[in-house]
Simulated assay, not measured.
Amino acid sequence: MSRPTCSVVIPAFNAAHLIGGQLGALAAQVGAPAFEVVVADNGSTDRLESEVLSWRDRLPGLRLVDASRGRGVSVARNVGISLAHTDRILVCDADDRVSAGWVAAIATGLSDHPLVSGPVETRLLSGRSADWVPIDRRTSALFETWGGRTYGIGCNLGLRREVWEQVGGFDESYPAGAEEIDFAWRAGELGYRFGYVEEALLHYRIRTDLRGVLRQQYNSGRGTSTLYGKFRPREVEPKTAVRRLRHELLLVTQFPWRGGQDARRSWLALMAFEAGKLIEARRLGSPAP
């Protein structure tokens, strides 16, 4: 194997049943520079190790590293990046699947930008559950949050090591949601801006079981409140207790009694997000955004 010029970091926890799809996609890359793959195991109790090691012949630059010093995707990302052998870092998740030109596109993008991200599509791996969450079936730009600030989603990310070092890594205090927004905001404060790479398509997996979707959205709501409590952006005016009550009652009254199963599950996902936001804000002692 040639000396790698970039490193793909994959945080993983109990992903033995899914990571083969991602590793297979990386083994089938087209036009990619030499790259290594670093799977950062966040303390898995399944067959992750044996599954990853079974891919070594097809991915000669594959390594499995111990990222079990703490729980969470930010811990795994930080450990994986710290142990990568190169200064161009590509980040994806164990349960998703990169497109055939993903490595080449992200690596090329990092020649021009300190941070890059690309589009995600939700249909290939998610099926009907793609309709249950507020993500476009295929995105066409960087993700956007309060005040029009943009960020790259954490499962489709490229960054130069200097950015990660200057920012101080991913904040490991976050629940599983909004940590990539926090990273992007802190990077922006230091003058680092994202570039968008249209060719860097990633197939994003939304949980196909309702319980998984609700847990995912609940954690996203928790992360949103953590983000607000940390930065308190001026453009966000937290709701008063009365406005908050009216808002939540309005959501309750919007239950789609006459809608189909997908509409009801979409409503439940929204309520899970709101619940996570309110509960985390209460725990932090800050207003809910």
Rank of each mutant, 00 (worst) to 15 (best):
S2F: 02
V8S: 10
F13M: 12
A15E: 15
H17W: 07
H17E: 12
L18R: 11
G21P: 08
Q22S: 12
L23I: 00
A27T: 02
V30H: 14
E36R: 12
N42C: 06
S44W: 04
S50V: 13
E51Y: 00
S54A: 15
R56V: 14
D57C: 05
L62N: 03
L64S: 02
R71S: 13
G80D: 10
S82T: 07
L83K: 15
A94W: 08
G101L: 07
I106E: 08
H113T: 03
L115S: 08
V116R: 03
S117P: 02
V120D: 04
E121K: 08
E121A: 09
T122R: 07
S126W: 07
R128W: 02
R128M: 06
S129G: 03
W132K: 04
I135D: 03
D136Q: 13
R138S: 01
T139S: 15
T139P: 01
A141M: 03
Y151L: 01
Y151H: 13
I153T: 15
G154M: 02
E162S: 15
V163G: 06
Q166H: 13
V167K: 09
P175H: 05
A178K: 00
I181K: 06
R186F: 02
A187Y: 10
A187S: 09
L190D: 08
G191N: 06
Y192A: 14
F194E: 08
Y196L: 07
E198F: 00
L201R: 11
L201V: 14
H203C: 06
Y204E: 05
I206W: 02
I206T: 07
T208L: 02
D209G: 05
R211A: 14
V213G: 09
V213M: 05
L214A: 05
R215A: 10
Q216F: 14
N219P: 00
G223R: 01
Y228F: 15
K230I: 04
R234P: 01
E237M: 02
K239S: 03
T240E: 03
R243Y: 03
R244N: 08
R246V: 01
R246S: 06
L250Y: 05
Q254V: 00
P256A: 05
W257Q: 10
G259L: 11
G259N: 10
A263L: 05
R264F: 01
R264D: 10
R265P: 03
S266T: 14
W267R: 12
L268H: 08
L268K: 09
L268E: 14
L270P: 00
K277C: 00
L284G: 04
S286N: 04
A288I: 07
